[in-house]
């Protein structure tokens, strides 16, 4: 693992937005675990005049942050001395099904109106977490690829926001990599790249693997020759998936699409349109439900905050 240094931290735009949203909607400080994977960066363009510089021994690494887990309370996975409770962390993280190739990369802390540098406890948590990460890596809990790239480098992201004048909120973030130095660990500022769509991120498209709970479309499943080659498990999964898909399509079989071609197409068109419309209706209903439940959540959160303030002995003067 020696010699591996993290060149930059790449965070998915949606993940970053989600963390900031989570932070700005919370009453106080927030922290949580950052998940994702380490990946190699393409080496910088080779030059032909200096052979020594191109044969750099240390591989270039980037940390790709794709997911996060936020604890609802301060010091959710560590104690007041900043010691990480690895069993608790394990238990909490196992509650959610994370995509494959998704491991603990580090953690984040979001605090309003405070110095934008790691605090006393944050430093301790990073040191402790990096030890936990090291132990996990040695335990071989992760897929081969990430284990190979597993470094005992803990990524720490610090978020801060301050309410400026005219209701403008400034959100700031910084990423650090914890690096072991001769005298203890040091947080080193690491550049952050926010990954979005667009030509600038074309090089990262190959790192993307689509994962969805939507079942795989059994295209060409009638072609029995292909099916025969597959194992029993695979065919079972296919049949289970097609059942799920059937449920979503309200009984509209894929085979019926075939009828769209040919002389009777006009008759079947209205049928398909009906299906489409009913699906749109469903979506609208869903959007409405989401909106209503969001309002409910917001109200409940505000009630919780009021109760918390009451427990803390604070009196609110606003009605």
């Amino acid at each position: 693992m020696e010699g591996i240094s993290i060149q930059k931290v790449s965070i998915w735009g949606t993940t970053l937005a989600s963390v900031i949203q989570r932070f700005s909607s919370s009453g106080g400080d927030v922290d949580g675990v950052l998940l994702g994977h380490f990946g190699r960066l393409l080496p910088p363009e080779l030059t032909d005049d200096d052979p020594s510089s191109s044969s750099s021994s240390s591989p270039l690494l980037s940390a790709f942050i794709t997911n996060y887990f936020c604890f609802g309370m301060p010091m959710g996975f560590y104690d007041s001395l900043g010691r990480v409770d690895s069993r608790l962390l394990d238990r909490v993280l196992s509650l959610v099904k994370w995509p494959e190739n998704c491991t603990v990369l580090g953690w984040f802390s979001a605090r309003r109106n405070s110095g934008l540098r790691p605090s006393m406890r944050e430093h301790a948590v990073s040191v402790s977490l990096s030890k936990v990460m090291e132990a996990l890596a040695r335990g071989g809990r992760f897929s081969e690829n990430s284990q190979e790239l597993m470094a005992d480098r803990c990524i720490f992201m610090l978020f801060s926001s301050s309410a400026g004048s005219h209701a403008i909120h400034n959100h700031e973030y910084r990423a650090y990599t914890l690096e072991p130095k001769s005298r203890g660990h040091v947080h080193t500022r690491t550049p952050v790249e926010v990954v979005n769509l667009g030509p600038a991120f074309r090089s990262q498209y190959n790192l993307f693997s689509p994962e969805s709970s939507f079942p795989w479309m059994p295209c060409g499943s009638e072609n029995s020759k292909v099916l025969e080659d597959k194992s029993l498990i695979n065919s079972r999964r296919t049949s289970r998936d097609s059942a799920a898909l059937g449920g979503l399509a309200e009984g509209y079989k894929l085979e019926r699409l075939r009828q769209m071609v040919g002389p009777n197409a006009e008759r079947h068109k209205s049928e398909l349109e009906q299906l489409y419309e009913s699906m749109l209706l469903k979506l609208e209903g869903l959007a409405e439900l989401v909106e209503k439940s969001s309002v409910g959540i917001l109200e409940q959160e505000n009630r919780n905050l009021e109760l918390k303030a009451k427990v803390a002995g604070l009196e609110s003067t606003t009605p």
């Binding site: 009453g27 106080g28 400080d29 309370m73 301060p74 010091m75 007041s80 001395l81 900043g82 010691r83 405070s114 110095g115 540098r117 605090s119 006393m120 406890r121 944050e122 430093h123 301790a124 040191v127 402790s128 030890k131 203890g184 660990h185 040091v186 947080h187 905050l305 918390k308 303030a309 803390a312 002995g313 604070l314």
Partner: peptide, 27 residues
């Protein structure tokens, strides 16, 4: 943390003391 007043406080040291880490006792 105003909402958790019984939780232990944290300290942010000035930037010139960024190598002062009193906490990681285990180091």
């Amino acid at each position: 943390n105003a909402y958790y007043p019984s939780a232990a406080p944290d300290v942010v040291f000035p930037s010139e003391d960024e190598d002062f880490h009193p906490l990681p006792f285990l180091e």
